[in-house]
């Protein structure tokens, strides 16, 4: 298997932040280093793909790669929301704990500060078990985006978050299709 990544120095979808709201950064970090966040998604799919049947390897590579593009979008939002914040403003946003450990840097932890852990993800080596986990992960990420959207009134952030949420819908769809492909794997009619 050969994988080649081409890095384009631009985001998958524009990220504009119109409101100075460091509190939102604390919520967004859930999708950065949280259990159902983009880092978990990217690492989960790009690892599972080695042991999945050939027909769906490409799908896991595509989606896993796109998750890194989403991770960059979230990172950009968090960075923009915090880069000019004073320690006082960060403290008011509930980010003092983050500041004493990381300063203005980003880090892989969830909204409650729990550090990212590989126990968030799994590779069972059973194609159906793995794809069902992937479908569940997409639905959980979709729900997380909904709850973040519910917590902001910045129309520009909402615009980007709605895009990311829709991509979860599309990814879930494609994982469901992968399950259908595997159901038919050894039967005579292969008409996808």
């Amino acid at each position: 298997m050969k994988a080649i990544w081409i890095y384009e120095k631009k985001l998958q979808y524009p990220v504009r932040v119109s409101k100075c709201d460091p509190k939102l950064a604390k919520m967004l970090i859930e999708q950065y280093g949280g259990a159902d966040g983009e880092l978990s998604a990217a690492l989960r799919y790009l690892n599972q793909r080695y042991s999945i049947p050939d027909k769906v390897i490409g799908l896991l590579t595509d989606i896993g790669t796109e998750e890194f593009a989403h991770l960059e979008m979230i990172a950009t939002m968090v960075y923009k929301l915090t880069k000019d914040a004073t320690p006082e403003q960060l403290r008011a946003a509930g980010l003092a704990d983050h500041y004493v450990n990381h300063g203005h840097a980003l880090f892989y932890h969830d909204a409650a500060g729990n550090p990212w852990t590989a126990t968030y993800i799994q590779a069972k080596g059973d194609p159906i078990a793995d794809l069902y986990e992937d479908i569940a992960a997409e639905e959980k990420a979709r729900a997380t985006y909904q709850w973040i959207i519910d917590n902001t009134d910045d129309p520009d952030i909402v615009d980007s978050l709605r895009f990311l949420r829709e991509r979860e819908v599309v990814h879930s769809l494609r994982f469901r299709e992968a399950v259908e492909i595997l159901k038919e794997y050894n039967s005579t009619k292969k008409m996808f």
Partner: peptide
């Protein structure tokens, strides 16, 4: 859960903004 052929498509620019090419898979929120 499975795409069929011959479906309607969004115009390319609109599809890029919405996150999907297919109106039947568009899920607005909120």
């Amino acid at each position: 859960p499975f795409q069929t052929s011959a479906r309607k498509q969004f115009a390319p620019h609109e599809a890029l903004r919405k996150g999907t090419l297919w109106p039947e898979y568009y899920s607005p929120y909120p």
